[in-house]
Design a binder for these strands. Structure first.
Lengths: 350, 350
DNA sequence: GTTAGCACTCATTTCGCTTGAGTGCTAATC
DNA sequence: GATTAGCACTCAAGCGAAATGAGTGCTAAC
């Protein structure tokens, strides 16, 4: 069977109506609402064909038709039109992102909050480190008698700062030597390599105090390093989903919320995606428990380095056009904001 | 009217039954289940008295009685017995908290996860800085041409590390001078004082480059400082609440979940509490939207200093005895873990 | 002071009935 | 051959009456 123009038009009308109302769409409604010059009976025949082709389903015999994941996929790929982001939304985004640019983490969180505010969906940010990332340098800084800060900088620009409680006395000089040693041994190496222990490291352990210090700090160094590879999830607007008819069913709501309870797992699932704005519909999601959700993500970057994903999750019935545009617009702004900070376009600095 | 022994006994029985079943308790059930030597009619009379005294309520005329917030308060203060934490729970807590002690943030998060796992309630951690906290020192560290790390250490031991993107070129020496300047000017001063701008600061701005750098970094310094005062919320086990009968009502569930959408607000509300294990029941909560929730928190500390709150939130109908014991036990362990790290009891350090 | 007894209340469940939106099929029409 | 009108059929959802039963409050007797 062929997807004729008319079939496409009907499918699009069904999707658009269903997305708006969350009610199965009947043939009569359709022929009334959209002034097509065909009768309900004809529409029924076409619908029947579309169902056979897998684009529509039926909650029960006497109900209207509901688009399938396949239909949404077709819609997103071929039928969907770019929706202009509303001026108010644009204004809010610009203003919010301008507010404090320097504090990376905070800005990105605020961006997520914004996203769920504008789309009325749940939003998330995932900040990973790429497995191929390499170590740039390591710094150890004295805080007090028993506390030092371990700072690890990766080539991607990712920075980890951790306060460590250590068990042995130390001198500032010893810290210096140790951090230089670590840097010397691991600089330019892949983090994964370092973690595997592939590299034969050469430490300055002549003095007993040095060797004690190293023995105390190295396990923490390794642990912190492995944490840097961990993906990290921040989410917002969870309660938005209660306004969506799909989630008046308590079980679906529970299902959805519990996605966010296994944060690390979810973060990992959300990461395995391509760059740019991506739409994943129902089944296409990595996790079975997300079968009735769609996810729209975009990649954001700082100084041109791909850094993380930001996006929204909602039911498969969502305004793909609108939401995609919003996610895209926001990400573009985010990227610009962080690029601008690099200074090329600034003239008040010199 | 007086709270006779018998009345207390009846009240306790009602609370214990209601906490278990979530169903209003009737006089017949009560006289059957608890072998008191009194008839349902007598119990009814007593119940009626208890209702008049504000300890019980009535969902409707022909329903059983439900304990009021006042009853729970009485229960927690006077009737509740200490419940021994189960050996399995103890084991899990000990093992989990032992795992990685040095990484403060991670450990505390894991503690929260644990808490919601064991109690089947939603858990949270709030990490604040006390308003009276004073600045200890400031450090600025080079990362790359346009990135520096700003490290602020407070007397309480709280450390803030932020990566800043700056707009002007800098030298390591200039960074050093600036961080020493900041430390010199603000050391020992209250963070709130510094933020108010009460202190006349004296900066080394002879060279243009220095003054540019300072102009670039100081606003960020102030912003980061004010962030240090902000309370911070981490939560876990949200979906647990769907297993609680109270929250099969979608509106109550939404209400509960949306508490966690305004994170900063919630964090602030959870902070205004005394030290030690605290139980806040229904109305007693700062926020009206928490009227039908109870909160059990405990204070944790590191090296006797840095202080935050960890705890659980659930419906007012909860197993106060059990949950309180668990929160208490876990916090004790947490505190011990962090104290131990200070070294006094360690002997493998040489 | 306690209890048995009884009338009364009211949420909840159940059942049958009606309604109406929708389909699928067939025969007539364009 | 495609389109449409017409009609029988299906089924979820809404409605109201009736039954159920857990519970109370009151009164009079113990």
């Amino acid at each position: 069977m062929n997807l004729t123009d008319r079939k496409l038009k009907i499918l699009q009308a069904i999707i658009s109506d269903y997305v708006r109302t969350a009610e199965p769409v009947g043939s009569r409604t359709l022929s009334k609402r959209f002034d097509m010059a065909i009768s309900p009976a004809t529409i029924r025949n076409e619908m029947s064909d579309l169902e056979e082709m897998g684009y529509l389903t039926h909650p029960h015999t006497s109900a209207g038709r509901v688009p399938s994941d396949k239909a949404y996929r077709l819609y997103v790929n071929n039928l969907m039109e770019k929706v202009e982001v509303s001026p108010e939304a644009k204004k809010t985004i610009k203003e919010t992102l301008r507010a404090d640019v320097e504090e990376f983490d905070k800005t990105i969180r605020r961006a997520a909050e914004l996203l769920s505010e504008i789309t009325n969906l749940a939003s998330f940010v995932v900040t990973p480190t790429k497995a191929e990332d390499r170590l740039k340098f390591v710094n150890l800084l004295p805080v007090d008698e028993r506390t030092v800060v371990l700072m690890i900088v990766a080539e991607s620009g990712k920075i980890s700062n951790t306060a460590l409680k250590i068990k042995v006395p130390y001198t500032e000089e010893a810290l210096n030597i140790l951090s230089k040693d670590i840097t010397y041994n691991y600089k330019g190496r892949k983090i994964t390599e370092v973690l595997r222990g592939d590299i034969i490291a050469d430490f300055n352990t002549d003095i007993e105090a040095m060797s004690n210090l190293a023995g105390n700090i190295m396990p923490n160094f390794m642990r912190t390093l492995s944490d840097m590879l961990n993906v990290n999830l921040y989410m917002d607007g969870l309660s938005n989903i209660f306004d969506i008819p799909e989630y008046t069913d308590i079980n679906r709501a529970r299902n959805f919320i519990s996605l966010f309870d296994k944060k690390e797992e979810l973060a990992r699932k959300l990461m395995n995606r391509d760059d740019g704005v991506t739409v994943t519909i129902g089944d296409e999601n990595a996790d079975d428990s997300m079968d009735d959700c769609s996810v729209i993500t975009a990649t954001y970057s700082v100084d041109g380095q791909l850094i993380g994903k930001i996006g929204v999750i909602g039911p498969t019935r969502m305004k793909y056009g609108e939401v995609t545009s919003i996610v895209e617009y926001l990400t573009q702004n985010l990227n610009e904001t962080f690029r601008l900070e690099n200074g090329e376009e600034e003239d008040n600095g010199g």
